[in-house]
Nucleic acid binder design. Structure first.
Lengths: 190, 190
DNA sequence: GGGTTTCTTGAGCGATCGCTCAAGTATATA
DNA sequence: TATATACTTGAGCGATCGCTCAAGAAACCC
């Protein structure tokens, strides 16, 4: 007897992710979301409960896609190939709402407030770091990089460099492609 | 016949800088500022005109101090020494309100809105990059690094790495000291 | 001390924030 | 087709936002 919702919940989450990603947590008002998602306040709260709940869903989606796409890349190019390709790939993707990492932006914005979403963003960054560490480990096992390196340490540095690169890629006074190439070149010297 | 203000304007700007630095633009309300600076709304607007004006002054102060402290460091340790020391120094400074760079946080938060303050933050980042490039150039002239590098490109990469490092330093799941050491070690291989 | 000028104070403005809920509407089942 | 069961709508809640301004207090010059 019920009536089905007229919206695609997954699509709305993806759309919200892009808006939050671009404008941040405080920078995105419910009015913005309601306008873009074409939802009235009532439907919005029936569907998601609160702005923060939707943000958490958006973060989760973002993180899942990130890990998944590194996995796909590794299947195509192998572990070291994927790590070397990722910097260029992430700054050249023109369909992204913004170059900078959503997890990093969220963490930077909300960490000082001890907001739950900052902790969630950090936890997703840990997953991403683990993903990188696995790739470094596999590259080491394959003999693509020297065995006298700690994969976790390499992953931390790599992730840190990527965060910096992706923020730099939003600046029009910086040649992000050169930085991406230099990061990739460093991996060949390991 | 006039009456002097009872506050130290420069000290208030420094205090506001620390609050904005830590909590961001949207994350800092006038109530927060009025409470911390011990100013009533009327005095606040007599002294600074608007929240954004004060933010701009805080940004400017931040950037000036940044360039100045790199200069001091270079006098002590030489150009390459300063560049190598900076990563560790910036993440070990316990008196800072937060490890991440205020220019980067501002830029990341406000760039999507095309806010004036984002443009100002970017312009300050250019100054900082120029400062790094000068040091790389001097290090090259002194024979401390090989002459076949573009100092501007080195500076862009270095600044990008520093931004990433400083954001990573706020995560308790990352050993920022190791990253800082690795960044410094890379400079020795140039 | 009187007069002038500035600074200080705080109530409160209009706008916007995230969010609620009662009324109306559409759909699936019986 | 009748009824039950959602979903949709939008006015508007209390709180907070950045900010204004008129009144009072304090410091300076004569």
């Amino acid at each position: 007897m019920p009536r089905k919702p007229s919206y695609d919940r997954d699509a709305l989450i993806a759309q919200a992710r892009d808006i939050f990603w671009r404008h941040g947590w405080a920078g995105t008002s419910l009015k913005d979301l309601e306008r873009e998602l074409k939802l009235k306040p009532g439907s919005f709260y029936a569907a998601f409960g609160s702005k923060d709940t939707l943000y958490a869903l958006a973060l989760e989606r973002y993180a899942q896609d990130g890990v998944a796409s590194m996995g796909t890349l590794a299947e195509e190019l192998g572990p070291l190939g994927a790590l070397k390709a990722q910097p260029r790939r992430v700054i050249e993707a023109s369909e992204l709402p913004t170059k900078a990492c959503m997890l990093a932006k969220t963490f930077a914005e909300l960490q000082a407030k001890d907001h739950d979403l900052a902790a969630q963003a950090r936890s997703h960054m840990v997953s991403m770091k683990t993903c990188f560490a696995d790739l470094f480990r596999r590259a080491q096992d394959a003999g693509e990089i020297a065995p006298d390196h700690d994969p976790d340490r390499l992953a931390s540095r790599y992730q840190s460099d990527l965060l910096g690169l992706r923020l730099s890629a939003e600046r029009d006074d910086v040649n992000a492609t050169e930085i991406a190439e230099d990061i990739a070149a460093d991996l060949d010297r390991l």
